[in-house]
Write a protein that binds this DNA or RNA. Structure first.
Length: 323
DNA sequence: TACATTTGACCTTT
DNA sequence: AAAGGTCAAATGTA
């Protein structure tokens, strides 16, 4: 893949390099033997190895954010939310739409938009069986991603249905937020394999997450000293991942058709988080799927995401150190 | 035992 | 009527 450096990227290149250097330094410290020496992040004890891994990843991903210029480009996210994700710009082949060979699907996606109030109108006040009562999606936001493997978005999803779709080779899987009832979160998504070789999975998100993951010790808030960085949070909540039977954001393996084995990466599929920085909390994060794709492209290893199941944490760390 | 998944039925939209 | 989206009982899993 060829790299070009847009002007906006060049202006941030120095900061990006700093992030990369920090990540590399952390990796080097880890690779020197996990010898119980305190690992320092910006002069502060980095904590556990696991936490350090998160910080390393955070550094690299933060560099990617700078590379993509996301931190000052809210419209970038909005465009994706509007269903225009096939025209993602921003740096260095981070565009997941390169896998999208079905242009006619874009129109279909737009027609599936809906308002949150419309998503379900199941009656709770009548004993009449209202199963399946709902309003089909018509307006509002959806966001589609085509990815070569199942990359999770950091949210806990629960499968509630599967349908064979007309003229589709693979069934469509329906997911709702696990916190639909306890936190009234209305986010849903659909996942469907749209290509076999190589496998491409199309994930369409509907609605926004109103649920909250509670802060975990491993969360990372990067040291952002400049004012423009003040709103940037990245966290890799592996505690939450464990809670979902997954081990680590960047290291978890997954099977091609099993959602419970999705690679969990604490990233935004939720445009309310990325678009509105005024509600900052430790669980906030500003990493989109494009960033993950960018990470995939950036990482000096081909087909990182599609072959990540081969790499456990140690291997990954070793690669960081060697790089 | 609690939670997640499967799957056929039910319902709405087109 | 066909297709797609959701529900919920049955089943599986840890």
């Amino acid at each position: 893949m060829e790299w070009s450096w847009p002007e906006s990227v060049l202006s941030n290149r120095e900061r990006m390099v700093e992030e990369l250097i920090q990540g590399r330094e952390l990796a080097s410290q880890l690779s020197r033997g996990f010898d119980n020496r305190p690992i320092l992040v910006n002069g502060v004890d980095g904590g556990s190895d696991e936490g350090t891994v998160n910080k390393i990843l955070g550094s690299f991903v933060n560099a990617l954010l700078i590379l993509n210029g996301k931190e000052c480009d809210q419209e970038f996210v909005s465009d994706q939310i509007q269903g225009n994700s096939n025209d993602v710009s921003g740096g260095g082949g981070a565009d997941s739409s390169s896998w999208d060979g079905n242009h006619d699907h874009a129109a279909a996606i737009k027609s599936e938009d809906y308002t949150e109030e419309e998503i379900s109108c199941k009656s709770t006040s009548t004993f009449e069986d209202r199963r399946g009562s709902y309003k089909r999606r018509k307006t509002s936001h959806s966001w589609t991603r085509d990815i070569p493997a199942l990359i999770a978005d950091g949210h806990a999803w629960r499968k509630y249905g599967q349908k064979n779709i007309h003229n589709a080779k693979h069934p469509r899987n329906y997911f709702r937020c696990t916190h639909k009832y306890d936190q009234a979160c209305k986010a849903t998504k659909q996942v469907q394999q749209v290509q076999d070789h190589p496998p491409v999975f199309r994930t369409t998100y509907y609605g926004t997450h109103t649920c909250r993951d509670y802060p975990k010790a491993s969360e990372l808030v990067l040291d952002c000293t400049s004012p423009r960085d003040s709103s940037k949070f990245i966290s890799f909540d592996n505690a939450n991942c464990l809670e979902n039977k997954q081990e680590h954001p960047f290291f978890t393996s997954f099977a091609s058709s099993s959602v419970k084995e999705e690679l969990i990466v604490k990233a935004t599929s939720d445009h309310t988080v990325t678009s509105h920085n005024n509600h900052s909390s430790p669980s906030d994060y500003l990493l989109s799927h494009d960033d993950l794709m960018a990470f995939d492209s950036f990482w000096p290893m081909s087909e990182f995401s599609s072959s990540i199941d081969q790499y456990d944490r140690d291997v990954f760390l070793k690669m960081i150190a060697e790089s």
